[in-house]
Simulated assay, not measured.
Amino acid sequence: MEPMFDNKRLLWLLALVAAFLFGPYRSPADEPNASQGTERKLPPGELGRLVQLGREIVENTHDHPLSKEFVGNSLDCTSCHLDAGTHPEAASFLGVATAYPAWSPREKRVITLQDRALNCFMRSQNGTRPPVGSQVAVAITAYITWLSTDQPIRMNPDKPLGPNHVPPLEQTTGDIDRGKTLYEDNCAYCHGDNGEGSDDGPPVWGDESYNDGAGLSRVPKLASWLKVAMPLDDTTLTSQEALDIAAYVNSHSRPKFRLQDHLPEEGKAGVYNGDGR
């Protein structure tokens, strides 16, 4: 009598059961992650073109022809969201779109991903908020959403943060004097002796840097980012060193944030972006 299952049939049956219980197998190469970054296949047609445009704006925000009119300093989105947002820890865009709509304690309302991206133009880039529905707004958020492909939606009821947000440090206080020495030893080569920036790094204080309404203007927030992002490609700072450098950097002058100075003209908060009649 033949056995009920030979080896091939048994393997086939096990694969069928696994597919039923766990869904189709998806290898790590199929997921958006730090190593793959933006290598996943673009959507076809106009959507894919818009996603690519979004990445170009993220990488060249302050001088891209579509976004430069809304930027008031020398920073690009990728100045903080390293590797065009594909860095797994430094203000990562990976998975961010899954957290929206989200409650925002700062705005005291539920905001969309588009709101969150456009608010950065007002604060981190010390510029004017682009209109909702504008090509800049849609392109940037299309790119960020593409980096969340296939990830489950988990809207955030507490804060507008995605699953890979920068974790806060346990300590919160830095020393400016220690920070000055650490900055000179670790940061000045790229960011300038006077924080003015260079070809290798953006300005970190002064008129061409973020204003005092940006998240990074708060020492604990900047320190937690420094801990996972700097020095670039060699993140060796201790938590205390990151706090000391953050205290020193944020002890310098930077533009003052006044909300009314950063909003679009009356009637231009949103735009109709369709060509149809």
Rank of each mutant, 00 (worst) to 15 (best):
T61V: 12
L118V: 03
I57G: 04
V58E: 04
R106C: 02
L42M: 15
G45D: 04
E39W: 03
P44L: 08
R26C: 09
S35A: 15
G48R: 07
P24Q: 05
V138W: 01
T38V: 12
A18Q: 13
P130C: 04
F20Q: 02
L113N: 12
N33D: 15
K108C: 07
Y25I: 08
V17E: 02
R109F: 07
N126M: 01
S79W: 05
A19R: 14
P24A: 12
G72Y: 06
Q52M: 06
V51N: 05
V71M: 10
L118A: 05
D63V: 07
L113D: 08
R26A: 15
R49T: 06
F121Y: 13
P32D: 09
C77P: 01
C77S: 08
V71F: 08
G95K: 13
E107C: 07
V138T: 11
R49Q: 14
G133D: 02
K68I: 09
A84F: 03
N73H: 09
T112R: 05
F121G: 04
P32W: 04
G85F: 12
G54K: 00
N7L: 14
Y100T: 09
E107T: 05
L50G: 00
L113P: 11
I111L: 04
L94W: 12
C80G: 04
Q125Y: 13
P131N: 00
E31K: 15
K8C: 05
D76C: 10
V138I: 15
T61G: 09
T38F: 09
G72S: 05
A15C: 11
R9N: 07
E107A: 14
A34K: 11
Y100N: 08
V51F: 06
D76G: 05
H81A: 07
R40E: 01
C77H: 07
N60V: 04
P24H: 06
T128H: 01
T128F: 01
V132I: 11
S134M: 02
L14D: 05
L53A: 02
V110C: 02
F70Y: 15
L14F: 15
V136K: 02
V110K: 12
E39C: 10
L50R: 14
V96W: 10
S104V: 13
V17K: 03
S79L: 11
A34C: 13
G45L: 05
H81N: 10
A34Y: 12
A15F: 14
T78H: 13
E107G: 09
C120E: 01
R26N: 06
T78W: 09
Q114H: 04
T38L: 08
L94A: 08
